[in-house]
Design a binder for these strands. Sequence first.
DNA 1: GCGACAG
DNA 2: ATCTTGTCGC
Length: 223
Amino acid sequence: MKTRKLHEWDLSCKEAIEIQRQLASQVRFTAMKKRPKIIAGLDCAFSKNGEQIFASAVVIDLSDFSIIETATASRKVDFPYIPGLLSFREAPACIDAIEKLKNTPDCLIVDGQGIAHPRQLGIASHIGLLIEKPTIGCAKSRLIGTFEEPGNKKGSYCPLVDSDETIGVVLRTRTDVKPVFVSVGHKCMLEDAISIILECTTKYRIPEPSRLAHQLVGQAKLG
DNA sequence: GCGACAG
DNA sequence: ATCTTGTCGC
């Protein structure tokens, strides 16, 4: 699928932060029109020496979780890992993989935060703006915000709060298993994000699209 | 200055 | 993210 170029990627931290501030105002929180049928998962991995980054996208049919299409890409790493600036390190490779997809998913789940970010522009939101499609951030740990421990049953969740605002939820995707951090990426509402993540989660803690993308990128990294 | 800090 | 095997438990 097509993506658009919103800015350069060869940036200093200061420039990257300024771009995040500018892009954050473009994020939209609109209700998802229809229940998504085709969903994609995205994930990255790095070579042992840390010089190469790999990204993979897996498109699945939500009705039966069958894989419709997959794509992988790799390139040289050119930005360090800095909390809050993750997208400048991983998004370029992700975009490469996304551009190889022939199908256009109704929604894309990204490994990381959406608006639950210091400047409301986590990697899920950033990628959402680049592809102009609904995106959801599903992270395995917290970046910012405070929260109470959700009930231990699958489906229970607690708000993730920052400055008196609900920026996401801490969601239990499996009974008695560590919860995940879900936040809106772009073009959807928190309620959409929660239901979609739960709908995509079956046997494991991580939603199926993301889990499959993780497996695939692990393969791509090997050879 | 100290502690926190997606992947 | 990455370095890494077996092992306890349902």
